[in-house]
Design a protein around this nucleic acid. Sequence first.
DNA 1: GCCAACGGAATATTTTAGAT
DNA 2: ATCTAAAATATTCCGTTGGC
Length: 490
Amino acid sequence: MAQTAEKVCIVCNSGFPGRVIQFVSCVDCKGPVHLTCIPGNKRGKVLSKATYVLMNKNNEAFFYKCSKCPTVPVPEIRVNLMAQVTEVVDVVENSRTTLAATFKLILGPLHSSPKKDLHPKPRTDATDIIPFTPIDGDCRPIITPEIELADAFAGLPMISTNEEVNSPMEQGSNSLLERQMATLEDSERYNERPSAQPNSPMELTSFFARPVATQESSLPSLAQERSRDRSNRSINGIRKWHIEPAAGKRLKPMLIDDTDRGLGIRYTRKNGTVMWRCNFRPKKNPCHGLVSQIGDKFAEHHPHSCNPKSHHKVNVILAAEAKKYALDHLNEPAQKVVEPLIVKVLDGNPNWNPINPTTLARAVNRRGSRCRSEKAPNIHDGRTNFRFENCSKMSYPEKLDGKQLLKAVSEVYCETNFLNEAFCYDDDKDDLNNSNNTQQRKKDHSKFQLQKRYLNVRQKMRKYHVQRYFRNDSQNNTDGNEEWEGTVCK
DNA sequence: GCCAACGGAATATTTTAGAT
DNA sequence: ATCTAAAATATTCCGTTGGC
């Protein structure tokens, strides 16, 4: 951490002005990085100025690894593991005194909150390093050094990785794993086990050298969690992923793992990471299974808490294929579509208990009939956006709760639940002024008016096959009418 | 008709950026 | 260093769909 005014920060590309230049150097490329340019260190959470000064004073090195450099491999610690555990325990204990300021437990990029993950919640594998696996590939559950050490801290029996790695089957898996891992981005390569750097109690990640994560003994053990998870894995411990694009209900994509559990897309992070959630979701004890996907790589964030399913993958793929075929051949009878597919699947899976053809045919029919109604002639062929004509008929005075109406309408596609709120009201016979309960009558009347206008809008939408529409605020409506724009069904 | 299997929205929690 | 607001992420709730 020497001062160097000529150098340029490899993160922000700016210099190091001022008398006191605080920076750290990448252990690999030696490039300087501002203290504040360290990922997650805007507020000194990773390396505060005070800590920096203290470390400088004690001539301590801060092992920073910039994102441009290849990840430093995780050290092999199979040999003399207990000695290392003792060593790390000493370090942790000492950290309460002299090293308290310098010893910050920072987890990898997938764990953004150092404070939170110091004591991980029992329901997650927060301290597990998550192995990424490619799509339609597989992954051996890995007992990483930090996991073993975490178990050791929790007072649990050590799990020997020697035996696992040395067995013929595991050796095979390892080579397969290595081939997969070779394709991963550097920042994700947690699980490599080269022979270099033996006996180091520190783990180097893409960011920093840091002490191994510990776990309070009062919390459920990682070993127990993994043991439960391992029992859910296939026999050889290989995790396989497969995405079926339209296997879900409403033709949503489904991720299927090697235990035949199906997962649906939960949400997509801003950085493009897709989060998949196990589809087993009864109201009582829904499964916690959670998988992240970056590109075509997958990682388990939460293990499943549900039981594996039998032939689920075969069934969902078959159903998806049948529905897809039915959509492409709308005029063919469902039974005719389904039966050959079932025979074909049965040929490839002799142990499969075939789905009832009638059941599948009914599902196919449902899908087909919906599609037939959706494929009504489109008078706005070729145009995805258009301006509503007769805008005056679509306008609403503000006093009739236009905002609420606008919100309801803009969220509506072709189907709506609005009519499910059966509202019986005889507009013609009602006399607002002669009612016993005038306030309530006025309220009902207003609601009825709203519904009538809404139905009028909906009718319009159907007529023009509008998927959704919204008010065009860019127009200055001088005549008091609101302008609407719509999106036509393709 | 019941209930599991989804799927989406609402809500809660955490993180980050910016101001002071 | 602290506070606040906004954004991002995670969790929960609830409605709909589909199979039996």
